[in-house]
Simulated scan of single mutants.
Amino acid sequence: MNPYSPTATKSIFRKYGIKPKKYLGQNFVVNKSVINNIIKAANLNPDDTVIEIGSGLGALTIELAKKVKQVIAVEKDGAMCKILQETLQKENIKNVTIINADILDSKNWKLPAKGWSASGGKIKNWKLVANIPYYITQPIIRLFLESEMPPQSITLLIQKEVAQRICAAAPKMNLLAISVQFYAQPEIISYISKNNFWPRPKVDSAILKITHIDKNRKKIDANIFFKTTRAGFSSPRKMLIGNLHKKLGIHREIILNIYLNLGINPEARAENLTIENWVELSTALFSHSTENVL
């Protein structure tokens, strides 16, 4: 029985005598139209390899397998892995590899971000598609955006408020938005009501797609960039120039001159700057005084 409705999903849990694990953030999509929307947003091709995180009962896994060459389903819950394996056998689906592991603990398996595949060869044209537990959203995105071999795109079903924060723009920037937008371009595809899940979470979700990955890496060293942005947001409600002076040890006059050269308002707060502003500012500060910035 495919888990595409509340009744079917509950029936599977009764059959195996198990319950959703709250500590793992298990909330299962029980509306096939939501699955179809995720698939559509991912823009999959027949030769793609998809990494799916938190495959659960396989509602998304099964539909992914119909669209791509290979699905690598990483699931932390051993019980879910067993159920999914049985479902795949009944459906005669043979292009799914299940890995019972914590995606964030690369010691337990070969991280796909470094080119791993089920056959031991290099992954080409791979994408990340998942309905992930809310509590691992930030570390998951960071893991794959910072990887040596990032995916072509990332399509995630995540908490609505987190998706909105990730897609924020000046003058309402935040560190989470900067940490994603430095590497890529995020976009909210659609919002998903909490009524489409079982157990029903307390908040709504959103389909977030991240593309154009790796766009800023060659412009500036990430360590320099994030050292500057963390300093800038150290006291978000205060003026940026004071934060940079205090945290980076650079004289206000020097920062002000850089502001003028870059066209940055001297009274700006960290949230007022765009990603381009931050890249230019970080580069300028580092170029002026390597010892102070590093």
Rank of each mutant, 00 (worst) to 15 (best):
R217K: 15
D204M: 05
I189W: 03
S190L: 11
L240A: 10
L208P: 01
I188P: 00
K202P: 00
I210H: 01
T211D: 04
I210P: 00
P199M: 09
F226V: 10
A231V: 12
P186E: 02
I241L: 13
F225C: 07
K215F: 08
R200K: 15
Q185D: 13
Q185W: 13
A222L: 14
I192C: 12
S234W: 00
Y191C: 15
K219Q: 10
S190A: 14
K219H: 07
T211K: 07
Y191M: 15
G242Q: 06
M239K: 14
A206G: 09
R237P: 02
I210W: 00
T228F: 06
A206C: 14
N223A: 14
R217L: 14
P186L: 15
K238V: 11
H212C: 13
T211A: 12
I210Y: 00
K227L: 06
P199W: 09
M239R: 13
V203D: 04
N196W: 03
F197T: 03
N196A: 15
D204W: 08
F225N: 01
K227D: 02
T228D: 00
N196R: 11
P199V: 07
F225M: 04
R230K: 13
D214F: 15
R237Q: 14
P201H: 04
K227G: 04
A231E: 02
K227N: 01
K238M: 05
Q185I: 06
D204T: 06
I224E: 02
S193V: 06
S193T: 13
N216D: 06
K194D: 00
D204L: 08
S205D: 05
S193H: 11
P199T: 05
N223E: 13
N216Y: 12
I189C: 01
K215Y: 10
P236T: 10
I188R: 06
Y183H: 14
L240G: 07
P236Q: 09
L208A: 07
I192H: 05
A231W: 03
K194N: 01
N216Q: 11
N216W: 13
I189Q: 05
E187K: 08
K194T: 00
Y183N: 03
I220T: 05
P201G: 11
R237M: 08
L240P: 02
K209C: 04
F233M: 08
W198Y: 14
K238Y: 13
H212K: 14
I210V: 11
A222G: 09
A206L: 10
K238H: 12
S193G: 13
I210N: 01
S235W: 08
P236C: 04
T229L: 02
A222Q: 12
D204P: 01
Y183V: 06
E187V: 13
A222H: 12
I207K: 02
A222K: 14
K202E: 03
F233Y: 04
A222P: 10
K215A: 09
N243V: 10
K238A: 09
T211E: 07
N243S: 14
I207T: 10
T211R: 05
I210M: 03
S205Y: 02
T229M: 04
K202T: 09
N223H: 14
Y191W: 13
N223W: 13
M239S: 08
